[in-house]
Design a protein around this nucleic acid. Structure first.
Lengths: 345, 345
DNA sequence: AACCGTAACGAAAACGTTTGCAATATAAAA
DNA sequence: TTTTATATTGCAAACGTTTTCGTTACGGTT
């Protein structure tokens, strides 16, 4: 038969003391006789007592849950973020409730509401590309529930943020192609209005300017879904240009893979005829042929940092202390592989 | 200032009725006057009332949380399982608490205990390769908390299970290589004692037998960590054999990628000199060159099925009805790509 | 003998729900 | 008019904790 979980009351009854005493003994309160404490601890161990978090948290008006909104779970970059989040959360006694927005604003709004209903103590969010209205997040702030935004962030909200230095990473990627001897470098950019995409575009342009190369709008291609297929079509278009590029910098590794496929089908050799570099450093980039150069985004670290900051704000709030929001910018790292390596180095 | 979340009491006070009435109105109980119900619903909406799940669940002695033990989060197969689990869970009003064992038994035991402390209503688990003792899971069963095992399962425990047909998938993979004209097929196998690995080995052997090919122990290589490097070293060993194989079937796509890298470095053409096939169907397998043939494991579906079964058992248990455990075997699907395609089909 | 300080513990309220039971009001039946 | 059935509602306990505020007992001080 199902045995019921043991409660404080059970222990108290067996010991002939009150529930309060048991609670205090277990929590290590001072005014408890050492022998009593000893006995309680021993019996609790023996009966395999496990405190009921529902009751504890109800009493304390907190849940010890942090909500995590993520665009896609099945995605190397994001799952490494999940890993980082879980590591810190577990270490700090929090549990994580994950929701997947699938880049859909309506779903994001619904799930954000669900997490609020679940009484999360704080929220980590990378918003969907399509999100422009942040009223659903403002609700949290009104209730005093802290939010930390990561990766995709907005200036519209006064909260802490964790991002990577997209501008610098992009600058380095572009400059790397220039150093390798490329003179006409195309950029397949991310969706308009998304901050990361804009930053990367700027980094690309500025690198060109620094090296006195013209910024040719013909060489800047748009993506909307940021996937393999868009990388492929953009590449076809670039190849049919009267004066095609000799290097392609794609906003994401996935897009870069689409680029490489099209180049292979067109019989164009990488990196000699066309150097290619991506952004993100997925695992897959290291095993394709030729291995894809890219800019490493420290996913795990983003997750860890954001979670540490969030838990910190949660605790400050519980202690009625004021919090000051900060934006942490993590460094990217250029990863040079064969897809862009023309010179020995 | 922080505004407190609104409770039943707040609504009751504003309406001059009792908390019980409000509760019943919201839950749609029959004996409530329509006008009262109307008024309650309206005010609740207006005040943006959200029931406190902690209180609800404490009262009902359940958590509406299901625990998910997973070997690694950053892994295509497993993250697709997570996705499937989350989809069903959310749909059924459950939330998911994920823990990562990292293939480490001690960590698995600790996290399984943590989930128990968190009062999960049920547990989904794929155990670590190193797990041979299942006492930590027995504890759940004693408490009447259902478990559903997926992917890595054991016969030692009388619980429901969801697996793919490793034997059949393996048989098909091997047979496919035979049909393509391979006569000496090597198998890089998974760790001994792990059920999936053993089943795949059997499928491989039986396919050879069916086609009257000898089972040559020299051609069966072991792995322990099941990674890229082991695929590479196994391949080197196979190549240095007096009579090397003309086809390699690897227990996992990751291992197969290691195989392909080594073959490339050795200047051996795939598939003509050596046909290669893996198992799992990661995304990466579709973008490498040549695209890797493999056996598709329906990760999302595994997650969905296991979660559906678990929630079903949870509900049966809550209704004091008896549950009968079943093992669901999902079909795999052979995915033929260029790494094994010698004949047109 | 009256008082006080302190150590150790218990009683009970509180957190926000749900729900069995009792209570009231209203309408129908006698 | 009284009785009875029915429709609404409220009371209060319960879920398992934590914590405030007492209470008791006891040794030591005046």
């Amino acid at each position: 038969m199902k045995q019921q979980p043991v409660t404080l009351k059970d222990i108290a009854a067996k010991l002939g003391v009150s529930v309060a005493t048991v609670s205090r003994a277990l929590r290590g309160y001072p005014d408890i006789r050492p022998e009593t404490k000893e006995a309680v601890l021993e019996l609790a161990e023996e009966m395999r007592y496990r405190p009921n978090p529902l009751a504890m948290n109800l009493r304390k008006n907190q849940s010890n849950i942090i909500g995590l909104m993520i665009p896609e779970v099945v995605h190397h970059f994001f799952s490494s973020i999940i890993e980082g989040v879980m590591e810190i959360a577990e270490e700090q006694g929090y549990t994580v409730m994950i929701c997947q927005s699938n880049e859909d604003f309506e779903r994001e709004r619904r799930d954000v509401g669900m997490l609020l209903s679940a009484r999360v103590d704080g929220l980590l969010i990378s918003h969907a590309n399509s999100t422009t209205d942040f009223a659903h997040l403002q609700e949290y702030l009104d209730l005093g529930i802290p939010i930390v935004m990561y990766d995709k962030v907005t200036d519209d909200l006064d909260v802490s943020k964790v991002v990577v230095d997209d501008y610098q990473g992009s600058f380095q990627a572009t400059e790397h192609l220039i150093v390798q001897g490329c003179t006409r470098i195309a950029h397949i950019r991310g969706p308009q209005g998304v901050k990361n995409a804009e930053e990367r575009l700027e980094g690309y342009k500025d690198a060109l300017l620094k090296h006195h190369l013209p910024v040719d709008e013909e060489l800047i291609k748009n993506t909307y879904r940021v996937d393999l297929a868009e990388g492929a079509t953009a590449t076809s278009e670039l190849l049919s240009l009267p004066h095609p590029p000799d290097g392609i910098y794609a906003v994401t590794d996935l897009v870069a893979l689409g680029v490489m496929q099209t180049l292979r089908e067109s019989g164009i050799s990488v990196p000699n005829q066309m150097a290619v570099i991506g952004f993100s450093n997925w695992f897959v980039s290291s095993v394709v042929d030729p291995p894809l150069s890219t800019v490493h985004q420290p996913g795990t670290e983003i997750g860890k940092t954001a979670t540490t900051m969030l838990i910190n704000e949660i605790r400050l709030g519980q202690a009625d202390q004021s919090v000051v929001h900060e934006t942490r910018v993590l460094n990217t790292r250029l990863v040079v592989r064969d897809s862009s390596k023309r010179k020995r180095g």
